[in-house]
Computed example of a mutant assay.
Amino acid sequence: MLDEQTAMLDAALAAAPHGKKRAGEDYVFLLLFEQRQGAICFAAAAAGAVYGLTLGIVKREALHFVFGVIAVLMTLVNANQTCLPFFGNHPKI
């Protein structure tokens, strides 16, 4: 599976115009880097949820705020696929 992923990334870089090879490499690096950051965010949210289970219901209000912000921002990020102007646009739709 890792070989297939590497082959796809190499094919994407090979398809970049000659003068934009470095930009293509940087783009692929950033895509992979941002995916790792997203995974860390989800792991942190999960750890916070587990920790929240050890707290009394009144002391969980900060966690509710964090999870509410995550929910709103994730909704807005996913809404850019609706092609509504104020949500931005997804370049592959």
Rank of each mutant, 00 (worst) to 15 (best):
M1W: 01
M1T: 08
L2P: 01
L2S: 04
D3Y: 03
E4N: 11
Q5V: 10
Q5K: 08
A7Y: 03
L9V: 03
L9S: 05
L9R: 03
A11V: 07
A12G: 06
A12D: 13
L13N: 02
L13K: 01
L13T: 01
L13A: 02
A16N: 02
H18W: 07
H18M: 05
G19C: 01
K20R: 14
K20V: 00
K21V: 01
K21F: 00
K21I: 00
K21L: 00
R22V: 10
G24A: 03
E25C: 02
E25N: 01
D26T: 02
V28M: 00
L30M: 03
L31C: 04
L32S: 08
Q35P: 09
R36E: 10
R36P: 03
Q37E: 10
A39F: 05
A39R: 12
I40T: 14
A44D: 09
A44T: 13
A45P: 05
A45M: 12
A46N: 12
A49W: 14
V50Q: 05
Y51C: 08
G52D: 04
G52F: 02
L53A: 15
T54Y: 13
L55A: 05
I57K: 13
V58H: 14
V58W: 15
V58D: 15
R60Y: 09
R60C: 10
E61S: 13
A62P: 14
L63I: 09
L63F: 15
L63N: 08
L63K: 06
V66Q: 12
V66T: 11
F67Q: 15
F67T: 07
A71F: 09
L73A: 15
M74E: 14
T75L: 11
T75I: 12
L76Q: 03
N78R: 06
N78F: 12
A79P: 08
A79T: 05
A79S: 15
A79E: 04
N80F: 10
N80M: 11
Q81E: 10
T82W: 08
F86P: 04
F87H: 01
F87M: 03
G88C: 01
G88M: 02
N89F: 06
H90V: 07
P91M: 02
K92Y: 13
